[in-house]
Structure formats: C-alpha cells, structure tokens
C-alpha cells in the first residue's frame, strides 16, 4: 500500500475539480492506501463547518486525513471554532514532513 499527499488550493465553489479530487482521495483510502488532503490557500474555505462540500465530509468519514494550513486559515479569518469536525489545523511544515517520508504528492 502506498501513501498519497494531495494539496488542494482551490475553493470548492470555484472548481468542481475539488469534489473530484476528494473522490479520488476517498477511493484510494477505501483501497487501503494512506491518504492526506492538505488544504491550502482558498482550499481552506471548504474546511468551514456548514459549507456544502459534501465530498470533503465523505473523505473525512472515509478516513482521509484532512489538514488545513493554519496560515491560510488566519489569512481568511477562519477561526478553528468555525472548522468542520475532523479537520486538523496544521503548519505547512507537516506537509514537508510527509514529502520527506516519501508520500506520493500531487498539487491541485
């Protein structure tokens, strides 16, 4: 089994591809792979509780490790109390740690 690290930089309401990336993450997780989805830039807008980003919630439920860049959250005024359950606030250095650990990485 492999480990996959996806960077999502786009707003779910800007691009339908965000939902497709979540679907890919879900399928990989269900196939037994380790999957992390690191939300950066406008990708963090999807992390707010109440946002109709259903695939993101399904990804969390499927066991995808969803992280949100603390810098991007602060830039956008999104406090941790406004995040959906299951979203972990993380510094970008955590993504570097996964890269260094050999997780296969893709940027969207």
């Amino acid at each position: 089994m492999a480990n996959y690290l996806f960077f999502e930089s786009r707003d779910v309401f800007e691009s339908n591809d965000v939902q497709r990336l979540c679907e890919l993450a879900i399928q990989l997780r269900r196939a037994g792979h380790g999957v992390a989805l690191f939300l950066v830039q406008n990708g963090t807008l999807s992390a707010r509780a109440g946002v109709a980003a259903s695939r993101l919630h399904q990804a969390i439920a499927a066991g995808v490790h969803v992280l949100a860049d603390e810098f991007a959250l602060a830039e956008r005024g999104i406090g941790t109390e406004r995040l959906a359950g299951g979203v972990e606030v993380a510094p970008l250095g955590e993504a570097v740690g996964l890269l260094a650990a050999g997780w296969k990485a893709a940027w969207h």
Binding site: S9, D69, A72, P91, L92, G93, A95, A100
Partner: peptide, 19 residues
C-alpha cells in the same frame, strides 16, 4: 498567484527541517 507564496513557504519549511 498565491501559489508562489505557498511554494516559498514550503521551501522555507523544508530548509528549516534540514532537508
């Protein structure tokens, strides 16, 4: 693009971690 800022932050974090 904000991608440039994020990219530089990744580079900074990678060097900070000693890579």
């Amino acid at each position: 693009s904000a991608r440039t800022t994020t990219a530089f932050r990744l580079l900074h974090a990678a060097i900070a971690q000693g890579h």
